[in-house]
Computed example of a mutant assay.
Amino acid sequence: MRAAVLALFAAAWCGARAEVIDDVLRSLARGASFLERQHAHINLDGVVGFLMLQAELKEAVRTWPHSDPVSWAQRTTAVALVKRLDQSFDKAVAALQRNDPKYYREFEPLLSWSFWVVPREWSSTERSLVYRSTRTTECYDEQLSDKCLTLLLGTWKMNGTPCIVTKPCRDTMTRFDCPHYSLSHQLLYFMIGRMRGCTNLLKGDTRPSRANMTEHSYQKIFCSNMMKTNQDIMRQGLTEQTVDIFMENILICGLTGFSDFYKADWLRHILQLQDEEVGCFGRDESAVSQVIGDELLEQLQPHRRVKRREKILADGCSSHMTAVAVGALGGYLNFYLSEQDITKRPLS
């Protein structure tokens, strides 16, 4: 009797999972259409988010279970999606190089799907690691963050040595009590360092209180606090102001290997945020006239640096939010396919 109940539960769960994967693939196909249309205008953050998605899709295709015709048909859909994205990337990266050559050169190593390593093992956050209190303002400075990343990547000068960690970078990137985007940039720093092959980002830290800290320790602390942020956001209700950081936390903590970010109800919220007409996320039609004005200003000041954090496109779409959303969805897809133990799947 128990075996029959378990078999029934497994069949129902597999059917539900197939429907969810269909929903994710449909959403990603609309996202790919958006990239195809906007490849010449999307900013560097936007391209990087789609490249994270591409890494996740390629891993998903590689490990896709050949269990039944439905699953195999879904894999065929994913393969077609990978090919579409590959074609768009060539055009998008060429546009980035043309529009902002200095910025392109500094972050060129990130502009390949093969840079982004998809997790094969999973861990979970811990409530006990949440800060007792956090700063009310960000401790993040975009210029310092960019400089620290170029030192890791080796792009701080032509043929620069990679994996350089200065004291200001280490102190900023290991600081506790930072909120929101500061947290996600701290995590991104460690994540990019690991993927670049930098083996000891903490060398030279002589603080006794940090003697036993490893890079994974910091990642776990950051993601535990990012989990608390997301739970608070959900409790208070998603708003236009909080949805971007909510999805960014899912994207980068998921890519770091924290599977408890892949909650089913969070996935439903992300899918509902997509604009059905143009396939993007964060669309604000009232911003269109403002965008046209900004584009005129860019034509008058062609060397003005394009702001990395955000770019609202001519159709009112958010370049950054769309890229973050599709990257997060790719993480969900890859996790659902790679995690074979049904007890660990995010069913609630």
Rank of each mutant, 00 (worst) to 15 (best):
M1H: 13
R2Y: 10
A4G: 05
A7E: 15
F9K: 13
A11K: 12
A12V: 13
G15M: 06
A16P: 01
R17L: 15
A18D: 14
D23L: 09
L28M: 12
F34M: 00
E36F: 06
I42H: 02
L44G: 08
G46F: 01
V47L: 02
L51Q: 07
L57P: 06
L57T: 07
R62H: 12
R62S: 10
P65H: 08
P65G: 09
V70K: 14
A73M: 09
Q74L: 05
R75P: 00
T76L: 12
T77F: 07
V82M: 02
V82R: 05
K91T: 15
R98G: 00
E108P: 00
V117A: 14
R120D: 13
R120N: 13
R120H: 15
S128N: 10
L129V: 08
R135Q: 14
T137C: 03
E142R: 13
C148Y: 01
C148Q: 04
T150Q: 11
W156R: 14
K157T: 09
T161G: 01
V165N: 07
P168T: 06
T174F: 06
L183T: 08
L187K: 02
R194N: 15
A211Y: 06
A211K: 14
I221Q: 12
S224L: 02
S224H: 05
N225M: 03
T229M: 14
I233Y: 12
I233V: 10
L238F: 10
E240W: 13
E248N: 11
N249I: 03
I252S: 10
C253D: 05
G257R: 00
S259G: 14
F261M: 04
A264S: 14
I270S: 00
L271E: 02
E277M: 03
V278M: 09
C280D: 10
V291G: 03
V291Q: 10
I292S: 07
G293R: 15
E295A: 02
E295K: 06
Q299Y: 07
Q301F: 15
P302H: 04
R305G: 09
I312R: 12
L313G: 06
L313W: 04
L313F: 05
S318I: 06
H320L: 08
V326P: 02
Y336P: 00
L337D: 02
S338I: 00
S338N: 14
